[in-house]
Design a protein around this nucleic acid. Structure first.
Length: 268
DNA sequence: ATTCTCACCTGTTAGC
DNA sequence: TGCTAACAGGTGAGAA
């Protein structure tokens, strides 16, 4: 679900609502979140200093000097809410704070999401993230694509190249600069790389402004959906008309993901 | 080294 | 209506 704009929206919500709060008790930690040490129970007594984002990761800075790393993967949500009813079956972490009745809940239907302490030397995705999608330049992108045979869409989804672009925004960015998702990455010209980088930056900026894209499960910290879905040009519009050329939007499989494009105006 | 496929898990929906 | 298969915003391990 959540790509850079959705994660950024969550981070902003956390900074507005949860920054500065001291954790009173850890009310619940689901078994699948207990893989790594230290145990998340250990959060009790600590305080959230602030939150920031890198790619699709949320990093919480704690008063103890430790950092908490959160990745929402497909269906993860971070919610700050008043808890009255009993805990839902997909609520995997619940924190109680000093001085407020609202709780922080990590909710995740598919359990792909990750919440753990960030340790010094990591060898996973977080430590190998590429250039932020909000900042990438045409020159940088062109350099990264150079000599690559794989489809441009696969490269955009690779977080070690550009950090933050996911399946929705990859389709949207390629559509906006008329590049076919299967075009070999190394065959983009410099002007095309410039256009693609600009489209990515612009999309990120607009989608953040609209608080992300909601189809199903995504919401911000308050449970509010994102508004960007109505600005999508190709994603989830299979069978609809291209707003540029009136062609029919098609869906295929690329880079192992459902991929939407206009065969008439996106050329290989 | 690069690229691809599958597995992870649960819920929803398309198709028969 | 009911059953089954395919699919869903992501990524990591292992294979080719």
């Amino acid at each position: 679900m959540p790509e850079l704009p959705e994660v950024e929206t969550v981070v902003r919500g956390l900074n507005e609502q949860v920054r500065g709060l001291t954790i009173n008790r850890v009310l619940h930690v689901a078994a699948h979140l207990r893989r790594r040490e230290p145990h998340l129970r250990d959060l009790a007594g600590d305080r959230f200093l602030d939150f920031h984002r890198r790619g699709k990761y949320i990093i919480a800075r704690l008063h103890s000097g430790r950092n908490l790393l959160i990745h929402l993967r497909m269906t993860g949500r971070v919610l700050f809410e008043t808890r009255t009813a009993r805990r839902g079956k997909h609520d995997h972490l619940e924190l109680e704070f000093v001085g407020t009745s609202e709780h922080l809940v990590f909710h995740d239907t598919r359990k792909f999401g990750v919440v753990e302490f960030l340790d010094e030397d990591r060898h996973d995705g977080y430590s190998s993230l590429g250039i932020e999608a909000t900042e990438i330049t045409g020159r940088q992108l062109h350099e990264l694509l150079h000599g690559r045979a794989r489809p441009i869409k696969a490269l955009l989804l690779d977080q070690t190249t550009v950090a933050g672009v996911g399946n929705i925004y990859a389709d949207e960015a390629l559509y906006r600069c008329r590049i076919h998702p299967l075009r070999p990455a190394g065959r983009l010209s410099r002007p095309q790389a410039d256009a693609l980088a600009a489209a990515i930056r612009r999309l990120m900026r607009l989608a953040i402004k609209k608080m992300g894209t909601t189809f199903d499960s995504y919401s911000g910290v308050n449970g509010n959906p994102g508004e960007f879905a109505r600005y999508l040009q190709v994603y989830n519009r299979e069978g609809g008309r291209c707003r540029r050329c009136r062609g029919i939007i098609k869906k295929m499989r690329a880079a192992g993901r459902g991929t939407h494009y206009c065969p008439k105006c996106q050329k290989r």
